[in-house]
Nucleic acid binder design. Structure first.
Lengths: 336, 336
DNA sequence: TTGTATGCGTTATCAC
DNA sequence: GTGATAACGCATACAA
């Protein structure tokens, strides 16, 4: 069921049919109707592969994100990024392919993503793993030669365009707030500094300490690479021994573990230990007390990043644009 | 940078190069090395569109799911389904395209998903909207002529293959449990019966009542079509006037709204009102009290569905297979 | 307003 | 073990 058959059926040429279908040159009303009828009857669908080969365009972009274990809120965060991006792409007539890689898993390395190698996509939205340029990111970036926009997580020492939240400022303001409500020994529990978001949150914590005149105490800082409740509990256990009165959590699962633990040993929040987190999920309003956090908008981030990628694909924007989105403080009760 | 150039460089024919690259017929060691070197030097990548046109195969499948507002746990659920499916597809050498549609939004109807019309994908994993066969699903299903497997939500009166959780049984057992711990007036708050999962949960509730000899009271049932905390609160407010002592929630956001409200008016859980929910999220262990739920495994569901689709694509499985996955009860404190 | 003819890059058939 | 070449379905330059 090719364009040729439609041509034969209508007694027209393939050129006329093609033009009629794509609206790329004038076609008489009569021919148009003939063609439409034939298409209707045969259920003809243009062959995507042929079109793509001929035009060298696919109208497809890819978004590559890390995947975590099931039931992890990080997945929900990235889903919202995807949906925000996808919405923007669809408005521009682009389709989106979602690919995921497993953090820390060599077997799921980016360069295995076959589609990218095959010139199927016209551009890539990429959430990298490490802050430093490493081989995984390298291969994805250099082997494709495609327009790329980094999302959520930065890579240092590159000219790649990127869109990310101002994690440092968001945490800095939160920690200063904890200090302003009278807390003297503020601990920090978060992810590894190899990931830019975790790194920036750590930097924000340090900046805040400096600005409020607190000394930096390494015993109050725990940077872990696995986000489980159990780890959150263990960190909290150790920190309690340090005589702290507040903890800032750079990850919400660690925060959950801490809350569960504190509740189990009847340490009151925020009276005994104040708590703040990052990101904002519905459940943070259901706990006792409700949790105060630093918020970033994943949907918006995806949308902005998609727009930037589209602009770069279409040559409308420089390919080293950096967009830093502000964070908001969502204040409830746990920080008081 | 085509296969022809590699042929020219090596002094071989395109046939030999193609076969060497695909391992589809014996090639001398010498030629092989020559070709590998040329590929290395030129950075040659096979053209996906050309391959696809020639072979009529893309090794791509699509998964179509509904998207909800940002920060909704439903998104996290479907993400896990995606990841489970994607993992299975990747193992089989297939790539996955993720497409989303907005529930209730005419503008995002399935038939707008261009990729499906263009014979890009070889099969579709589909989470439909309504229980009844309607035009949206219709167009997606009938227009493509592709192998399709329904996931999570059923469509009635079709022979389509599907994979879904036994929502009815999961809820039935939960409600009977609530009765067994002494609750006499058990209310039910969930989604609209137009969606199969909500419908089945409702059926499960009704079955349980019958089995335990409770009368069905329409005043104790609230089926809403919007999942917000506010709605959850409103439902709870009305139900409290009915003198209930337990509520089963078919949706976790509604449950959150209820908990927030009950806490705010100092109604104790579970002493005054027992509560159970559906799905299991980490935060359900952090609230006071911890929440008991009916659990389904989204990752597993995606994996099973992907396997079924692959089997159907490869003709190894009948195209009307139905797989119903059991639910588990995750018991904590809110149901006591 | 329409038609003819070419080539995109690959695979696969047939012949050697 | 290898090569020449047709064909996949489309868009488009050129011609009428």
């Amino acid at each position: 069921m090719s364009i040729r058959e439609i041509a034969k059926m209508t007694g027209l040429s393939t050129a006329t049919v093609s033009h009629a279908l794509n609206g790329t040159r004038r076609v008489s009303q009569k021919s148009l109707e003939l063609i439409q009828k034939a298409v209707e009857e045969t259920g003809y669908k243009p062959n995507f592969a042929a079109q793509m080969m001929r035009t060298n365009r696919s109208n497809i972009v890819a978004i590559i994100i890390p995947e975590t274990k099931p039931n992890n809120s990080t997945n929900g965060f990235f889903f919202d990024v995807i949906v925000g991006a996808r919405t923007a792409f669809q408005k521009a007539g682009y389709n989106t392919i979602v690919a995921t890689y497993i953090e820390n898993d060599e077997d799921s390395r980016i360069d295995k993503i076959i589609l990218l190698k095959k010139q199927l996509v016209e551009g890539i939205l990429f959430v990298p793993y490490r802050r430093e340029l490493n081989d995984v990111a390298d291969s994805a970036i250099q082997n494709t030669g495609l327009p790329i926009v980094l999302v959520d997580r930065r890579i240092e020492n590159t000219d790649l365009p990127m869109v990310y939240a101002d994690n440092a400022d968001g945490v800095c303001r939160a920690v200063k707030l904890l200090a302003s409500t009278g807390h003297k020994r503020i601990a920090f529990v978060s992810g590894p500094t190899t990931i830019s978001t975790s790194y920036d949150r750590y930097i924000g914590y340090c900046q805040a300490l400096k600005q409020i005149g607190h000394a930096y105490d390494p015993d109050l800082v725990m940077l872990v690479s696995t986000y489980t409740k159990e780890i959150g509990k263990e960190c909290t256990e150790k920190l309690l021994a340090q005589g702290i009165d507040a903890i800032y959590f750079g990850n919400d699962v660690l925060l959950m573990g801490a809350m569960e633990y504190l509740q189990s040993i009847h340490v009151r929040i925020p009276e005994d230990i104040a708590i703040m987190g990052f990101d904002d999920y519905d459940w943070m309003g259901v706990t006792t007390p409700k949790i105060s956090t630093t918020y970033q908008d994943p949907w918006h981030m995806g949308e902005i990043a998609a727009g930037l990628l589209l602009d770069i694909i279409q040559g409308k924007e420089k390919d080293d644009t950096v967009i830093r989105l502000p964070c908001e403080l969502h204040l409830r009760q746990s920080h008081l």
